[in-house]
Computed example of a mutant assay.
Amino acid sequence: MARVEFKNIVKVYEDEKRGSFTAVKGSSFVIEDREFVVFVGPSGCGKTTSLRMIAGLERQTSGDIRIGERVVNDLHPKDRDIAMVFQDYALYPHMTIAENLSFGLRNLKRPKDEIERKVKEASSILGLGDMLSRKPRELSGGQRQRVAVGRAIVRDPQVFLFDEPLSNLDAKLRIQMRVELAELHKRLGATIVYVTHDQVEAMTLGERIVVMNEGEIQQIASPTELYNKPNNMFVAGFIGSPAMNFIDARIGGGQALLAGGTAFPLPEAAARALGAYEGKPIVLGVRPEHIYGEAMAPDRAGSAKLEAHVQVVEQLGAESLVYFRVGERMVTARVHPELPVALGARQTFVLDAAKLHWFDPQTEQRIVF
């Protein structure tokens, strides 16, 4: 296996009608040997373009890409020692599963005994041993995706590249395949670069996550750090489901004055750190799971309270999602399902004072203290 390094990578697409478009804007990062790294972000953020540049399917406009000890800028994809799994399974329908798995090795003129050994190993790892004589049409979507992964495994590459491989599967199969991919990484000890637009998928699979937006890297961190210490409002709003709530506020006299008229005292450390914003706009961020109904709020939550009229309640069994408006923004609270909540009623909610985030409304950066 090998590490992957991007150094000041820029990708510009030229279009005669629309002019130039910069898809990746000076990315630099290192993916360590045997690490599982996930690129995540909305459509058009540059994540798939970055993956394709590692594979050699796209040529960077400037900068260097290194795989292992080699700069691979000028290497053909087949010479980069990578294997890629696409969103589309891309299996040969007229071939058996065994033939699909061995196709790449046969093209490379590998010895027959080596091909048989590697196909047997890959099929055993992926639970395909009793399906080798079948054709792709006889398999489920999840089984076909396993074959696509197996075709990459038999190559024994330095780096595995996954381009949204689960997006064609239904919700139940996606969960199952996430577990299987995580276990596969542990068994192979492989360097894996994985692209998805699904932040839940990113959080459950990645040892580190690269969050991208509009061609720029917003933050590279572990799932826990992204959740607890987002760099900015984009990361805070993208990571977490439901998304983090943002509430317009001002700081005054050691209090947070929220849009809509509610105010609550700030803890001493927060009051000191936010003193520079006295009388100025600021954005309060709070995750839905850190908002409680007053009747069920833990003692540690503190005295950060607000009142609002309940507009919608989604009862999901193990929890309820309660929606209400604070100023111009809709806020979501994830509360205990037994909390008495009535539509249209004015309800008191408690924000966990230790879990609040504060953002500069101009730069959208999190204020660290």
Rank of each mutant, 00 (worst) to 15 (best):
N213L: 10
I367F: 10
S50H: 03
F6R: 14
Q158F: 01
M296Q: 15
L139M: 06
G129H: 01
T96H: 02
Q219E: 07
V4H: 08
H197F: 07
G150W: 05
L161Q: 10
Q362G: 00
L226Y: 02
T49Y: 02
G129T: 13
L169D: 04
S241G: 09
A270G: 00
E307C: 07
N107C: 08
M1D: 14
L91S: 07
H290W: 05
F160W: 08
I209D: 04
T61Y: 06
E69Q: 14
P93T: 13
E138F: 14
A273F: 08
T224K: 15
Y277T: 05
Q158C: 03
Q143C: 10
E121L: 01
A249C: 04
R137N: 10
E14A: 12
G327Y: 02
L258Q: 04
A297P: 09
G237T: 13
V10F: 10
D198R: 05
P281C: 09
H357D: 09
Q60A: 15
K186S: 05
A152W: 02
I125A: 13
Q219K: 09
R110Q: 14
G327L: 00
K120T: 14
G41E: 03
F160K: 08
E364W: 00
V335I: 12
E214H: 15
R134Q: 06
G56V: 02
E183K: 14
V200I: 15
A333D: 12
E201A: 00
T49D: 08
R146S: 08
V24I: 12
L343T: 08
E338M: 12
Q255W: 10
R3V: 02
V12Q: 07
R187V: 04
K25S: 09
K47Y: 01
P242Y: 11
V350E: 12
P242K: 10
L161P: 07
P230R: 01
R18H: 13
E216S: 11
G19A: 05
G254E: 01
P340F: 03
H185T: 12
P77R: 11
R80W: 03
H197T: 01
I82W: 01
S28D: 10
M203A: 15
P340M: 04
R329D: 02
A271D: 13
P340E: 07
D248Q: 04
T196D: 10
A308P: 15
Y227V: 02
T61I: 01
E16P: 06
P111R: 04
G252N: 10
M203E: 14
D64L: 01
V154W: 03
Q311A: 14
K229Q: 13
V149G: 00
G142F: 02
P265F: 02
I82V: 15
S303A: 09
Q362A: 11
L161K: 07
K172T: 11
G129I: 00
Y292C: 05
I115K: 12
E35M: 12
E364A: 15
V72K: 04
W358T: 05
A148K: 01
T204F: 11
L258F: 11
T262I: 00
G127N: 14
Q176S: 14
K7V: 13
S27I: 11
M84K: 03
L339P: 00
G344D: 05
V341I: 08
E116Y: 09
L316M: 15
R144F: 14
L75A: 12
I54L: 12
I153W: 08
